[in-house]
Design a protein around this nucleic acid. Sequence first.
DNA 1: TCACGGTCGTTAGCCTAACTAATAAGCTAG
DNA 2: CTAGCTTATTAGTTAGGCTAACGACCGTGA
Lengths: 143, 143
Amino acid sequence: MAKRMPPAQLATLLRDAITRLNRRVRQTRPVGDLTGTQLSALTSLELAGALTPRELADTERVQPPTMTKIVAKLEERGLVQRTPHPTDGRQVILATTDTGRAMLAQFDRARNEWLAGRLAELTPEDRDALQRAAEILQKVARD
Amino acid sequence: MAKRMPPAQLATLLRDAITRLNRRVRQTRPVGDLTGTQLSALTSLELAGALTPRELADTERVQPPTMTKIVAKLEERGLVQRTPHPTDGRQVILATTDTGRAMLAQFDRARNEWLAGRLAELTPEDRDALQRAAEILQKVARD
DNA sequence: TCACGGTCGTTAGCCTAACTAATAAGCTAG
DNA sequence: CTAGCTTATTAGTTAGGCTAACGACCGTGA
């Protein structure tokens, strides 16, 4: 591995690597027509269990009106379900439907296929390094 | 660090980490108004020296009409320059102008600021891990 | 108790960025 | 020299983001 570099240079290197990999992964968008944004929102919702639109917007780092549109499309396809909030009449509770969960599993598999294949070709040491890095990056990205 | 995980699971973890970090970095769009797309195209062009619109579209993994629009905006701001192809009358040669190069340097600095700050807060060991990971990811992303 | 300020979700309107289809211009091989 | 390919552009559509504005609803303080 190359010499230890200053944070600014590492930032450039990391950003470049991540941008490229991200494009790469996005290109392998599979059959069916959930866009990346929709898939991401649906995933967040599934992970959280149930969220209000506002909460989902916050986790997706998007403004509420944007989330309104995204949710509308997901609802159109029967992937998420709205129910009224039990005590607060303003709020709405969003949750994934069974259809949504099934779709999610299917897409996740297809989406991961390319990257997983690539990773399988690496040495176990390289994979360990990436696993550690992923955990660090999660922390860094978290606000 | 967690137990060693199979490639498919690592792929999910990595993809998630990278998606989040990418959004984060994109949010720190600096002063002046070059969009991410425009910045990316300008960068590719600068790295390659000179390209035709088709070649630039290919490197950006975008369809030619999309690149037409991007280039039009960059040209409007005097950041890239078109010159006719010496032998093929259909083609056009694109290159960055001095203004474009200056803008590029400035934006790159601003773009890195947030991430570099974040990285500076990590331990040297964590930074080493990220550096190694970035190098591995470059390889993985390279077709 | 009720009026008023704040919150939640949505609508409307705008912009960027991507796509496909169609077209004009130019090249090249038979 | 013409028929067919390639290059770039134009036109039109869709997704996805934003801000501004609004109606419905909550909760608190006079």
